Simulated scan of single mutants.
Amino acid sequence: MGTDIVKEQTPEYLFADAVYSFIDLAQLVANRLSKKMFWLIGEAPDGIAWRDVDEK
């Protein structure tokens, strides 16, 4: 498939999976504990936001 594809179990794949797992856990905790949604747009810390679930 070429060199542009990230293969499974490489350091890059494992890092991306860890980042995704952290963001997914933050979203779950925020929603369960405070009815908030976790947003990360751009770079941390400026891109991190917490929004009410009802907010659109």
Score class of each variant (00 low, 15 high):
residue 1 M to Y: 10
residue 2 G to V: 05
residue 2 G to F: 06
residue 4 D to G: 10
residue 6 V to T: 13
residue 6 V to H: 06
residue 7 K to P: 03
residue 7 K to F: 14
residue 7 K to W: 14
residue 9 Q to Y: 05
residue 9 Q to V: 05
residue 10 T to S: 03
residue 11 P to Y: 04
residue 11 P to M: 04
residue 11 P to W: 11
residue 11 P to L: 08
residue 11 P to C: 09
residue 12 E to K: 07
residue 15 F to C: 12
residue 16 A to T: 13
residue 17 D to H: 15
residue 17 D to P: 02
residue 17 D to K: 15
residue 18 A to N: 08
residue 18 A to I: 14
residue 19 V to A: 15
residue 19 V to P: 02
residue 19 V to Y: 09
residue 19 V to C: 14
residue 20 Y to T: 08
residue 20 Y to S: 08
residue 20 Y to Q: 12
residue 21 S to C: 07
residue 23 I to H: 05
residue 23 I to M: 05
residue 24 D to I: 07
residue 25 L to C: 07
residue 25 L to V: 08
residue 25 L to E: 10
residue 26 A to H: 00
residue 27 Q to S: 15
residue 27 Q to D: 12
residue 27 Q to A: 12
residue 28 L to E: 13
residue 29 V to Q: 11
residue 29 V to P: 00
residue 30 A to T: 03
residue 30 A to Q: 01
residue 30 A to C: 12
residue 31 N to A: 08
residue 31 N to T: 09
residue 32 R to V: 10
residue 33 L to F: 13
residue 34 S to L: 10
residue 37 M to Q: 10
residue 38 F to W: 03
residue 38 F to C: 02
residue 38 F to K: 00
residue 39 W to S: 06
residue 39 W to P: 03
residue 40 L to Y: 03
residue 40 L to N: 00
residue 41 I to M: 01
residue 41 I to G: 03
residue 41 I to A: 05
residue 42 G to T: 02
residue 43 E to I: 02
residue 43 E to W: 07
residue 43 E to C: 05
residue 44 A to Y: 05
residue 44 A to F: 04
residue 46 D to A: 08
residue 46 D to E: 11
residue 46 D to T: 04
residue 48 I to N: 10
residue 48 I to A: 12
residue 49 A to N: 09
residue 51 R to M: 09
residue 52 D to Y: 04
residue 53 V to P: 00
residue 53 V to H: 03
residue 54 D to E: 14
residue 55 E to T: 06
residue 55 E to Y: 11
residue 55 E to V: 00
residue 56 K to Y: 08
residue 56 K to L: 11
